[in-house]
Design a binder for these strands. Sequence first.
DNA 1: CTCGCTATTTTGATTACTCAAAATAGTATG
DNA 2: CATACTATTTTGAGTAATCAAAATAGCGAG
Lengths: 220, 220
Amino acid sequence: MASITVENYLKQLYLEQQTSPGELVSMGRLANAMGVVPGTVTTMVKALADSGLVVYEPRGGVKLTRGGEQLALHVLRRHRLVESFLVKVLGLDWSEVHSEADELEHAISDKVLEKMDEYLGRPSVDPHGDPIPTAKGKLTETHLDSLANCELGRSVRIARVLDQEPAFLQFVDRCGLIPGVTVKVDSRDAQSDAVAVRLHGRPTVTLGTVAAEKLLVETL
Amino acid sequence: MASITVENYLKQLYLEQQTSPGELVSMGRLANAMGVVPGTVTTMVKALADSGLVVYEPRGGVKLTRGGEQLALHVLRRHRLVESFLVKVLGLDWSEVHSEADELEHAISDKVLEKMDEYLGRPSVDPHGDPIPTAKGKLTETHLDSLANCELGRSVRIARVLDQEPAFLQFVDRCGLIPGVTVKVDSRDAQSDAVAVRLHGRPTVTLGTVAAEKLLVETL
DNA sequence: CTCGCTATTTTGATTACTCAAAATAGTATG
DNA sequence: CATACTATTTTGAGTAATCAAAATAGCGAG
């Protein structure tokens, strides 16, 4: 059985790999994401490599093996199903479930997970729009544009919020840019770094590019 | 924050204290309950004593302080509410939720626990009839007779099952002696160690005294 | 009071994870 | 190409929890 620590390393490594596909993940980056010093990561990654969960290139970086990826996806499935359950069934605020799920993802058995999945009607995405891996460890990441680069004037639906920080999610909530909502990007201006977004029956919201990039959309 | 291990020691110590009120719990007994060697318990108990969670009498035994008891009750509350939730909401079998709850009890936040409690309608007992401590750490253990010593011929209701082993619970399930059911003890025989129990519209069940003692009843 | 038994405690080691800080490798720059 | 900077690795050490096995204490029987 993989320890909680091992599960966390694998999950984080998976997420880091997603943001820069193909490349190895550096020790520094993983250390930063895990909140430990780099030396700790070197030690841990070597142990993970010995267990066949990652491939480690000294001074190069690290990536998951097929086995490591399966384990990571299983953890991610638990995380995202738990988030969905907490929001849909227990009525927690979507801005606070991320940290709750970080704990519960290590304590939930397959049996309980299956019941939750059934109870929720086998959702394919969690409350933030993140896709939920299947029980067999399959994950389909569809490419989505963001509010920072989608077509101007076209109706698009908010599909996914990449930043899970409570403060950001609460902001998103306040201005109504939550997943499922249909909006139009009115204008963008490179100089002022501003993206103007129009919502149905709401005042127009202006975002900076950094924030706009965190909101992924589906073209209708 | 108390570690998972500490939470488990306190919870177990609480349960051991319940079964022999007033007395100190011996190292050997706690070691046995925790599934570790006695030396480990001595070491651990000394550490718990240093944290003010238990009172340790060398070569005498150990008992919880007020603070330790509060922590233990908080763990027990999480355990029993989780069990209730798994059975009532997710539809797991009551014979399998004990071990599930052993994991989840350490991962559930107060916020989630409060939502579960609300969702369940603030139950006072779990699916086995064990009382659920309040959020403030108060537990009312009511004295109950068992099928081994209740009045003969009188209608009684099964209120609590003390043994949480899946095999025993499944047996209890099969013969219908689950909490809430009304039964009568037809006869007892000290020599044959037998207790005959009559159920409404079911064949009479004969139990040994050891099993009968595990089924607590309320007189109607 | 002295064995001898049993429960307990102590001792010495191990595993998993972590940090601080020194050593090293790789890269970029003058 | 030597030098300097940065990322990485190594080293030494600490904490939490555990075990095996040796030492000890307390007790009852004689």
